[in-house]
Simulated assay, not measured.
Amino acid sequence: MKRRLRISAFMAILSASTIAGPARAEAAPAGAVDITVTPSGFTAPASVRAGALTLNVRSQDPQGAWIGLVRLRPGVPLDLYLRHLAQAMDDDPRTSVAGGRAVAEDVVMLGGAAAGHIPAAVTTVVTPGRYHLVDFRDVREPDFAQRVRPLRVVGSAAGSRTPSPPAVITAPAVITATDSGFVAPRRLTSGAPVLVVNRSSQFNEAMLMPVRPGTTPADLDAFFSGTGGYPFTAGPTGVVPMSPSRAALLTTALPPGEYALVTWVRNLRTGRMLAQEGMREPVTIAPADTPIP
């Protein structure tokens, strides 16, 4: 049976750890931020209104972009978080795990969009406060700190007496990250919104990567065990790391074909990549006019 979740249900997930089905509560009026990433960085507005916020990410950088939205926890300075983030993305598992654990204590991660040559949009919900937009691909750049963009979220517009109509977005598909792996449909429709939920015990992501035609689960197993060749034909598109019990809505018009749903995040207990531990699934992207069964 087709499941259709409204944006109001998606918003409720951000403050609850379970999905109780489509909710009827009104959603906050949606806003959007257009972000174009170049090899020298990106620009973003200094402030946005609280509510449903969509990050429309387009990359002019051949390496792509991983734009994430984070909120520092009280008392954590930005430079400390950035230092821990660099450690979390180190190739040495010991350094990476220590950094990842520190990052989880430093910030709340609200997700964001990974985009290559195909733009991607991710919708999350923000409450008033101070946030930062970070391109995780820039972490090794010498001017990384200068590339981070502060974002102030303010309350509803003053003087507005008539509330805007609620934003309604249908999500025919749901991808859930759990400690046992991904729970996801085997087929998604290009351009259709997908609700991504993190029900695992640590921060996690959901990346769609195109693979060579005919790639099997055994091929993915072989690659991640170090006994097989590289099956991917392009970089990732998807939702960058979110803290546990967070959710985001992904919309991207990926070309139809065969993909793998993966996470490149390390298990903060074992030090191994979660994809190596089985967090990977084959997914087919169907044309936009193809109904989901």
Rank of each mutant, 00 (worst) to 15 (best):
M1I: 14
S8G: 15
S8K: 01
S8A: 13
A9Y: 04
A12M: 11
S15Y: 08
S17W: 11
T18F: 06
A20M: 14
G21P: 02
G21D: 03
E26Y: 06
G31I: 13
G31S: 14
D34A: 14
D34F: 08
G41Y: 04
S47G: 04
R49C: 06
T54Q: 12
V57C: 05
R58L: 11
D61L: 05
P62D: 08
I67F: 04
I67V: 13
G68I: 02
R71Q: 13
P74W: 00
V76P: 00
L82H: 03
L85D: 13
Q87F: 09
A88Q: 08
D92F: 02
P93E: 09
V97Q: 09
G99D: 07
G100I: 04
E105G: 14
E105C: 08
M109I: 11
G111M: 06
G116N: 10
I118S: 05
T123L: 09
V125N: 10
V126H: 06
T127P: 06
V134P: 07
R137M: 15
P142H: 08
Q146N: 12
R147F: 00
R152K: 13
V154E: 13
G155V: 03
A157Q: 15
A158I: 09
P163T: 05
P165W: 04
A171Y: 09
T176Q: 12
A184L: 02
A184K: 04
P185E: 00
P185L: 00
L188H: 03
A192H: 05
P193L: 00
P193H: 03
V194W: 00
A206Y: 02
A206R: 04
P213E: 05
T215L: 12
A222W: 11
G226W: 02
G238H: 03
P241M: 04
P244R: 03
A253G: 06
G271M: 01
M273K: 14
L274Y: 07
A275N: 10
A275D: 03
A275I: 10
E277G: 08
V283Y: 00
V283A: 01
I285S: 01
